[in-house]
Lab assay of single mutants.
Amino acid sequence: NDEAKKEAEKLWKNNKSEDEIKERLERAGISPDEAEQWLQELR
């Protein structure tokens, strides 16, 4: 999970869309709710 979150953070810094980041997190096995929460922390 931490690995996926690091990846999400990297994508965020590269200005990827939130949808793309969420999709990537969900593919890594993170629930949509958790993915949404993680994005809010990044904002």
Rank of each mutant, 00 (worst) to 15 (best):
A28Y: 15
E18N: 04
W12L: 05
N14H: 08
N1T: 13
S31M: 05
I30F: 11
D19T: 13
K16L: 14
A8E: 01
A28P: 04
K5G: 01
K6F: 06
K6G: 04
D19W: 12
I21L: 04
I21C: 04
S17M: 04
R24N: 10
Q37I: 09
E41T: 10
N1H: 14
I21Y: 03
G29Q: 00
E3W: 15
N14P: 01
D33K: 10
E7L: 15
E34V: 15
L11N: 03
W12K: 02
E20W: 07
E9Y: 14
G29S: 00
I30P: 00
S17L: 05
L42Q: 04
A35Y: 10
K22W: 07
R43Q: 08
K10D: 11
L25E: 02
E23T: 09
K6S: 08
S17C: 01
K16M: 15
K6P: 03
L11G: 05
R24D: 09
A8I: 10
E7K: 04
L25W: 03
K10V: 12
R24S: 14
I30E: 03
R27C: 11
A4V: 09
I30Y: 08
E23V: 04
L39G: 00
L11W: 12
D33F: 09
E36L: 08
K5N: 00
A8H: 02
L42N: 02
E7M: 15
E36K: 05
E26N: 06
R24A: 15
R27Y: 11
A35E: 01
K5W: 15
W38A: 01
D2M: 13
E41H: 11
E3T: 10
K22E: 03
D19G: 06
E23S: 09
K13V: 07
R27M: 14
K22R: 14
L11V: 03
E7Y: 14
S31R: 04
K22N: 02
E36W: 08
A35L: 09
N1K: 15
E18P: 08
P32Y: 05
E3Q: 10
K13L: 12
E41F: 09
S31V: 02
E26L: 14
S17Q: 04
L42F: 14
G29Y: 00
P32L: 09
I21D: 01
A8D: 01
E41A: 12
L25I: 02
E20T: 03
R24K: 12
E9G: 06
D2G: 10
E34H: 04
P32I: 06
L39I: 12
W12E: 03
K22C: 05
E18K: 06
L39Q: 01
A35T: 06
Q40H: 11
K10W: 15
L25C: 00
D2F: 12
E41R: 08
Q37T: 08
E36T: 07
K10C: 13
E41S: 10
E9M: 13
E3Y: 11
D2Q: 13
R27W: 12
A4P: 05
K6A: 11
D19E: 13
L42M: 09
E7W: 14
A35V: 15
K5L: 08
Q37D: 06
Q37F: 07
E26P: 00
G29K: 00
N14T: 06
A4I: 13
E20N: 02
D33R: 07
L39P: 00
S31I: 01
Q40C: 00
K13S: 09
N14D: 14
E7I: 12
L42H: 07
E20F: 12
W38K: 01
E41K: 08
K6C: 15
E23F: 06
A4N: 04
E20D: 05
D19M: 09
L42D: 01
